[in-house]
Amino acid sequence: MSEAVATAEQIHGHDDHPAHLQHHFVTSDQQFEASKMGMWLFLITEILLFSGMFVAYTVYRVWHPEVFQGVSSLLDWRLGGLNTIVLLASSFTVAMSIHFAQKNNQKGLVINLVITLLCACIFLVVKYFEYTGKFSHGIFPGIAYHPHGDYAVYDIPYAGQFFSIYYIMTGIHGFHVLVGIGVFIWITIRAIKGDFTSAYYTPVELTGLYWHLVDIIWIFLFPLLYLI
């Protein structure tokens, strides 16, 4: 349908009507603001999605503080810290990419998007080694939680709850990173094709907002799970 309307408008010689503007919006600004507001609304649904897990974490931590403090030392703060820095860096580069898109700097945009993409991949690789490391000691979520060897002392009541919450929280967070990678690949290809200019960079802006939120979630996960 939008194609049909666009055709009609081309016939009538409306060449001040940019290609990215959909027919039901009046101006590009209206479209940009609407998309951005939609994205923010989506972001708070993400926050509320994660809030369920934060509430579960808090409730069990209040009930069994010593267990949660004890077993959290099983998680390696070095790897967690590394991943924090990696995600912060990717957040920074994505902000830079928007900066360059606004300045019509094609090269800066693409380079920063590629770095972001790399950081996201590094994050998942580190996560993979963390997970497999834990699995090899029998630290699984739920009923399968049976630490053995040196870790056998951690086979205490409610430690399973901690790791269940850990795996679900980081798992869903990791899933968001994975989705982010997919979107960044698409955005990067479009950026290389030169789709984005200072007049139209909405997808970069929206993906950036999403990515910052993924970063913020991790900012809270890191101390709660690894540090305290």
Binding site: W40, F54, G208
Partner: peptide
């Protein structure tokens, strides 16, 4: 700064605020 709410339409800050309040209520 990264999400540039400081320079953005205040409505978006309000949306975030309401989300955070909701999480607080839940907790």
């Amino acid at each position: 700064f990264f999400m540039a709410l400081k320079y953005d339409n205040p409505m978006n800050s309000l949306i975030l605020g309401i989300g955070v309040i909701c999480v607080t209520v839940f907790l």
